[in-house]
């Protein structure tokens, strides 16, 4: 009996929170066929939003992959003062609201702050421009690669790396030939998660981008702006596109998730 109640509760919960809203969006999007959908997504503003989103997400994923692997190695393989602090800082973006992140970035890099002013005098504009949006996205998706890689790195141990050293491999050779293949699935998983988070980021990017249409407008910002301007077909089309990307990344993570365990033997 209890089992059935639980099942009904779970189904209703998922239905009202997920299936119904997403289903409605898809239904609204394709209600008049594929024509309006492609038309809405190929408008210059939409295409530009796609481009901005991909640029920002691309750089953010790249930065977090490099940083994530480096930080994971540091946390697992090395002892140093402040190690626990670093671990805590890496998890911080999980707890801090993205809006706060955006405001903090403006405080540091805005035109009227000393540092931002200095960069501006060198011709580097951070806030209301791509660098600021990349920074914001990097911040919110920071823990994802690190947290995916750390447990696998711990499980892998360092004996294989030591064996490679005694066989004459340098640190770099050991990393490329031994460590990286050992964490490849976890790293792939982390990268996909990071990509999904970067594509969907709204709050922090909204603050630092200034929401300039056709300039700093990402896909999520585009959805919101179109909706506010009563252009529902475009808003729904872009929302559906975002949802589809999410589904694809979700499937990718499902594919990547269990592999290291099997490899691990």
């Amino acid at each position: 009996m209890a089992k059935h109640v639980l099942r009904v509760v779970a189904v209703v919960y998922v239905l009202f929170l997920l299936v119904l809203p997403v289903g409605l969006i898809i239904w609204r999007t394709f209600g008049d066929g594929l024509g309006p959908f492609t038309e809405a997504l190929t408008s210059p503003s939409a295409l530009h939003a796609f481009k901005v989103t991909l640029t920002v997400a691309g750089w953010a994923v790249l930065a977090n992959t490099v940083f994530g692997v480096g930080a994971a190695l540091l946390l697992v393989r090395h002892e140093f003062p402040g190690k626990r602090l670093l671990g805590a800082f890496i998890d911080l973006p999980m707890a801090v609201s993205p809006v706060v992140v955006g405001l903090a970035l403006i405080l540091v890099y805005g035109r009227f702050s000393p540092f931002g002013g200095l960069l501006e005098s060198w011709g580097i504009q951070v806030i209301f421009s791509t660098p600021g949006m990349v920074l914001a996205t990097v911040f919110v998706s920071l823990p994802l690669v690190v947290r995916a890689v750390v447990p696998v790195l711990e499980e892998l141990g360092d004996e294989q790396e030591q064996a490679a050293h005694t066989l004459g491999a340098s640190r770099l050779q050991t990393f490329v030939r031994i460590t990286l293949p050992g964490i490849r699935w976890a790293l792939g998983y982390g990268v996909v998660l990071c990509l999904a988070r970067s594509l969907g980021e709204y709050g922090a990017v909204a603050v630092v981008s200034g929401r300039l249409v056709d300039q700093t407008q990402t896909l999520t910002l585009f959805v919101e702006e179109r909706f506010q301007n009563f252009d529902q077909p475009a808003a729904f089309a872009a929302a559906t596109a975002l949802a589809l990307i999410a589904v694809v990344t979700l499937l990718l993570t499902k594919l990547l998730r269990p592999k290291d365990r099997i490899d691990g033997n």
């Binding site: 030591q162 064996a163 050293h165 005694t166 491999a169 340098s170 050992g182 490899d263």
Partner: peptide, 20 residues
């Protein structure tokens, strides 16, 4: 000298096989 330059062969208790 680092282990890399000592030219010693080392065998570990738990083999340290390169699994991939």
């Amino acid at each position: 000298l680092s282990p890399q330059r000592r030219n010693v062969g080392f065998v570990f208790q738990h083999y340290a096989a390169f699994k991939h």
